[in-house]
Design a protein around this nucleic acid. Structure first.
Lengths: 235, 235
DNA sequence: CGTTACGTTGATGATATTCAAGGACTGTGG
DNA sequence: CCACAGTCCTTGAATATCATCAACGTAACG
């Protein structure tokens, strides 16, 4: 990998596998990357911990370097809806008012770059590509939520599960059909898919019985029949 | 109503009941409003027509003056998910990439102000309050979609219907518990709530039987027991 | 080797969808 | 003004799907 664009002081992990795929940094010149770096701070978080909670002041924007997180929303009756899962390269916290309207829980050990939201906004005024990238990220997030909405509105349990698998396959860096790591629990899947842990488990059993997927280990998914899974997931 | 902030050439309908509630224009000075006006054009659309279609170039941002529209998304299998209903004062088309990723269908005769997206963005660089308003609108839209996601994921048909009614009551200008006009068909409600027309109809019957609501006319909803409906709708 | 947390499976009842038939409202033309 | 057709809405019956409660497996860990 070329090191031409590598700012001097950023943690090297940035450049292992994430940097190239990271939307936030697309098309930035070395000089602009340097300026962005000045607003950033590496931050770590352990499995099960929260990056931030619902209703906390929305002062920071995060860029996931490594690990997987769940965006979740708790409601007054105690129920939980997971809005999405985010992976290395993804950005958190762009679309918020003064307070975060959801919480971010780490499913694994997580490393993030933490930006002051204010400074990022100021910088985006001066760096046109950065602004464009931020807008693009927002519209992608929105588009993804609308797909999610459709899945919860129209699809059956089995199809929902396939939707999740295709999402993971497409968005989890390094995922291949024969190797998708499920970092989330069955309960997390259920809360994402608007279902229950039992229904998820039964749907999994059905997919296994039909030889569409296999589980060499509990959280190691293999997609055996990609065409069929993709078909079921289809939007 | 004070006319101090009234730009000279804007269509008077703007000032009948919408202007004060319109987020896009909050806190703008008369001079700034004048500049905004220069980018605007009044446009009308009949019931059943589309303001724009999915995948059309996203060149414009709309501000609803009068009427009701449905934001909908069509999927490859022909199914339709309605993302939301918009009313006077609401803004359409802020969060999109180059192409609209959903379509906007008019449920009634509709009047909108049509802004060039490009010019609006440029103007927002110069007018700080406008930029803030736009950000606030985006985060509200996002927050609303997340509530919707929760409703589709976690709630039963009856509760979903109550959720819709409360949304209408809160957001439809002029709506009161004893007078909520349903401009959408039963099919529209079903497509919004991730349900079927029959289930919507049955849920309605149940709510009527329990004296929570009444229908003096087919599309004139009265909420008889606001506390109960609100309770059922609760997020 | 027991404890604990997490996942699976079975039985049952609740809820929603589907298919089909019947009403109610609307607009048109006689 | 009425008859008729068309559209939308409601209701019924049968079925499919899912949630719930409970029991059982299994993997991880001290």
């Amino acid at each position: 990998m070329s090191t031409v664009f590598m700012p001097k002081h950023i943690h090297p992990i940035y450049f292992n596998n994430v940097f190239d795929e990271c939307l936030l940094f697309q098309n930035l010149t070395p000089n602009e990357l340097d300026r962005l770096e000045g607003s950033a701070e590496l931050s770590k978080c352990n499995e099960g911990e929260y990056l931030f909670r619902q209703d906390a002041p929305a002062d920071f924007v995060y860029n996931v370097i490594s690990g997987t997180v769940a965006i979740e929303r708790i409601f007054s009756n105690g129920k939980r809806q997971i809005i999405g899962f985010l992976f290395p390269g993804d950005v958190i916290g762009l679309i918020h008012s003064e307070k975060y309207d959801c919480a971010v829980r780490c499913l694994t050990k997580v490393e993030v770059y933490k930006f002051s939201r204010k400074r990022l906004n100021i910088l985006s005024e001066e760096v046109d590509h950065l602004k464009q990238n931020m807008e693009q990220i927002k519209s992608r997030i929105f588009s993804r939520v609308m797909d999610h909405l459709y899945v919860l509105g129209q699809k059956k349990a089995l199809e929902r599960l396939c939707f999740l698998f295709m999402q993971l396959l497409e968005r989890l860096p390094g995922a291949r059909p024969d190797r998708v790591d499920l970092y989330m629990s069955r309960q997390d899947m259920a809360d994402y898919l608007g279902s229950t842990i039992e229904t998820v488990s039964r749907s999994l059993a059905k997919l296994k019985a039909d030889k569409l997927v296999a589980f060499p280990k509990l959280n190691h998914l293999q997609i055996l029949n990609l065409a069929a899974v993709s078909e079921l997931a289809e939007c």
